[in-house]
């Protein structure tokens, strides 16, 4: 049981890096970027092919997965900003294309990494620690570094321009911000992180699979939503940007813990996507219904306050 929970935590941390990517597009740019399902698998596929077929250094393979993800983001960015295709559709187009591209890259639908060294197995051998523990520790280091880097980037002039773009495009252009460029940067950054997460997940689970990214966007949104709820329940409300990023990663860990628990309780793994979608739908619907209810309750026929 504890081993299963530790496994869930390690998964939650690695997927948390993807959640940070989704956070950039969904929360900062106000776009639900569906590229993410494809770019996660892309990161994993590129990583697996490099390690298995080209004997590449696993660290370099991580970098390659990241760059591949960024390129996927650039394609969505170009479709959206250059050709004015709505963001959701642009993401779907890239995602669908990536299914074929990923199969081309791997040449088959999955690649096992069993006998190959990964960043995790290397460290596990060197320290004698169990693989899951190594994944948790290394994954946490990656997550902390990512949160730190994002905190820095979104405090810079370019990062602020990017946040402004997601907030008010008219104003941003009036203040001289090239909103096409900022959206492009955001989509590349986001998908770069998603690709990195794909490569890390591939190395920790020791295989890459064509379907590994399916539903990733829903996991991302669910984790963000869970993180927000946890943030709101925490005293002090966690308003700062860095704490919201941390909340997103924690949301991811909680998501995978919930998942491990319901699977232990005997739920079919295939029903998990239904549960995830329900979590997101409920989380998005509750505030709307609540507000409507408040408005109705505050209505007085006579007009006296």
């Amino acid at each position: 049981m504890t081993l299963a929970m530790l496994g869930a935590i390690s998964q939650g941390i690695l997927w948390g890096i993807m959640v940070l990517g989704v956070y950039i597009t969904y929360k900062l740019l106000d776009i639900a970027d569906l590229t993410c399902d494809g770019s996660l698998a892309l990161g994993g596929c590129v990583c697996a092919v490099l390690v298995v077929e080209h004997g590449a250094n696993p660290w370099l393979a991580l970098l390659a997965g990241t760059v591949a993800g960024m390129l996927a983001g650039a394609v969505t960015g170009a479709l959206h900003t250059v050709f004015d295709i709505p963001a959701i559709l642009a993401g779907i187009l890239t995602q669908i294309s990536l299914w074929s591209i990923n199969l081309r890259i791997m040449g088959k639908s999955n690649i096992p990494l069993l006998k190959h060294e990964t960043i995790f197995s290397g460290l596990a051998e060197a320290t004698g620690a169990p693989q899951t523990t190594v994944v948790v520790v290394l994954g946490a280091l990656f997550a902390v570094a990512t949160v730190g880097a994002l905190y820095w980037f979104f405090g810079t002039e370019i990062g602020s321009a990017l946040r402004a773009t997601g907030n008010n495009e008219d104003m941003s252009r009036a203040l001289g911000i090239d909103t096409r460029l900022t959206k492009m940067i955001a989509l590349m950054l986001s998908n770069g992180l998603v690709g990195l997460a794909g490569a890390l997940i591939c190395q920790s689970q020791k295989y890459a699979d064509i379907g590994m990214g399916t539903g990733a966007i829903i996991i991302g949104l669910a984790a963000i939503v869970i993180g927000e709820v946890l943030g709101r329940l925490t005293p002090g409300k966690l308003r700062s940007f860095s704490s919201r990023l941390v909340a997103a990663v924690v949301g991811s860990i909680v998501y995978f813990l919930i998942r491990a628990i319901v699977l232990q309780l005997g739920m079919d793994a295939n029903d998990m996507k239904l549960l995830s979608a329900t979590i997101v739908a409920v989380a998005l619907a509750v505030p709307v219904v609540w507000e409507r209810q408040q408005l109705r309750a505050s209505y007085r026929k006579g007009g006296e306050a």
Binding site: T156, E157, I158, S160, A164, S172
Partner: peptide, 13 residues
Amino acid sequence: LAARRGKSRTLRW
């Protein structure tokens, strides 16, 4: 943001 209108935006704070 407004103070940087018309200036190139960099990775400075």
